[in-house]
Simulated assay, not measured.
Amino acid sequence: MNFKSLGRLFSVLVFPLVLTSVLVTGLGMSATVSAADGQTSQQMANAKTSDADLWRAVKAGDSGFTTAQGVEANVLINVVGNQGTIIKNEYLTPAMAVAVLGVFAAFLVFYFVNGPSKLSNGFSGKMVLRWSKADLILHWMMAISCLGLILTGLIIMLGKHFLQPYVSDGIWAAVILVGKTIHDWVGPIFMAAWVLCVVKWMPMQTFKMYDLKWFLVVGGYINFGPFKGKHPDSGFANAGEKMWFWTLTIFGLFICVSGIMLVLPGLELPREASMAALLIHASSAIIIIAFTIVHIWMATVLSEGGIDCMKSGYCDENWAVQHHNLWYDEIKENGTLEYKD
């Protein structure tokens, strides 16, 4: 048999085997590659799902493990803290602006429409002792510290809206630093004055049945309609002053406690407690700010002769008869009525 014959025989017998082997090997490699690709895709999908679950848990506030120590060290995102920030920015900050501008504007309108509450019989010229020197010191200690806290608190809460956009970053940083420092250091003075005021003045602040009529005729401050000339009975403190006292007592307590929680980092409070303290502090401040504006308006421009009491401790006798008749009758009857020399 010659070489040509052998070549033809090799081609007929071997080539189909080689071709079959190539095809089988190719299909096997293709299947292997497809399987590997499928496995890789599944691993990537599992990895993405795992990452999504991880960050979903982090955003939900789930705790994990960190090497840091301390309160809530294992929590990356505190949900309560974020929710509290939203409440403060979207609700409490606008409410504080309303408390300042709204209440002030309402009393301004009332003043131009109604005018001040004049003394029906004018000034008598006789000054009756109403407050002791200790009372005056205590009142102004409370008043000045309260106003200091209000002004600095307004800068801290509202300054980013009405001041920060109009000054440089350096000036804004300095204003916030000074405001925060004053706020923190005036706080203890307010707390001390608050305790002394509550202890000393509480016996005079109990509500009586005649206080209801005071509210019904708006204290006799209305100068028109059926309320004009109505001067309701009142003891040493009228019903409005009593309401102001108890508002300051209750919400002043909230402010003092929450302020201590916020200003002392050594307490190491959980985020929930700190955020609750911040919201209570701001809410209580809004109420006290509104009542403070009312108190200042009533004492200065709406009540003729009212501010004299807190300047010298003495009030005009006709003012005492008109605004605190039951107290005047009492001191006149028991012999404790004292005139200024």
Rank of each mutant, 00 (worst) to 15 (best):
I189W: 08
F190E: 02
F190Y: 14
F190M: 03
M191T: 11
M191P: 09
A192G: 05
A193M: 10
A193H: 08
A193R: 09
A193V: 09
W194Y: 14
W194V: 07
V195L: 13
V195P: 05
V195D: 03
V195Y: 05
V195Q: 03
C197R: 04
C197S: 12
C197I: 07
C197E: 06
V198G: 02
V198N: 05
K200Q: 03
K200P: 00
K200I: 04
K200E: 01
W201P: 00
W201V: 01
M202I: 07
P203R: 12
P203T: 10
M204E: 06
M204D: 05
Q205L: 01
Q205T: 06
Q205R: 07
T206C: 08
T206P: 11
T206Y: 15
F207N: 06
F207H: 09
F207A: 08
F207S: 06
K208M: 05
K208S: 04
M209Y: 04
M209W: 05
M209I: 06
D211F: 01
L212E: 03
L212H: 07
L212P: 00
L212G: 03
K213C: 02
K213M: 07
W214N: 06
W214R: 10
W214V: 00
W214L: 03
F215D: 00
F215W: 13
L216W: 14
L216G: 08
V218H: 13
V218Q: 14
G219M: 15
G219N: 15
G219T: 12
G219A: 15
